[in-house]
């Protein structure tokens, strides 16, 4: 049994082993493959050196895990903003998209103003046209009666 494993470990190339090293260190490999890596490392000095380097990197990274300057909690300001956003979703949306909201407001104002102006012009033009027609008619009638 042990002999079989030793043979399998030998058959795996160094490159294959190196690909498994992180998983080996982080205990993500199953029992079988873990044994294969261990067996290979026991015999192969090159892979052992690579493994040692990798393990140093992992240790170095993990030694910086607890940064005293890193915040552990959200600030009160952030909490306040979260609460505001979830209790007034519409107001929050508008304040985030204020450029869009103000553009839309301007467009709507312009449209309404345009419509109102057109309406005023039509109302002003309409009586004038009628008056001209009436005048023309009046002139014609006068001419008729004069004859």
């Amino acid at each position: 049994m042990i002999n079989d494993k030793a043979k399998a470990a030998h058959r795996l190339k160094c490159d294959d082993i190196r690909e498994l090293l992180i998983e080996y260190f982080l205990r993500e490999l199953g029992q079988n493959r873990s044994d294969l890596v261990r067996e290979h490392l026991r015999k192969c000095e090159d892979c052992r050196a690579t493994a040692a380097e990798l393990s140093d990197t992992v240790d170095l990274l993990r030694s910086t895990m607890h940064d005293p300057e890193e915040p552990q909690r959200l600030s009160d300001e952030s909490r306040r903003r979260i609460l505001h956003a979830i209790s007034h979703p519409l107001l929050d949306w508008m304040s985030r998209h204020h450029t869009l909201v103000s553009t839309v407001v301007v467009i709507i104002t312009l449209l309404v103003a345009g419509l109102l102006l057109r309406d005023i012009r039509i109302r002003r033009d309409l009586p004038e046209a009628i008056e001209v027609e009436v005048l023309k008619e009046a002139v014609i009638t006068d001419e008729y009666y004069e004859e």
Binding site: P71, L74, S75, S78, R81, I82, A85, I86
Partner: peptide, 10 residues
């Protein structure tokens, strides 16, 4: 990071 996490919770 604070802004990003705040958004994620919202």
């Amino acid at each position: 990071a604070e802004d990003v996490v705040q958004e994620a919770f919202i």
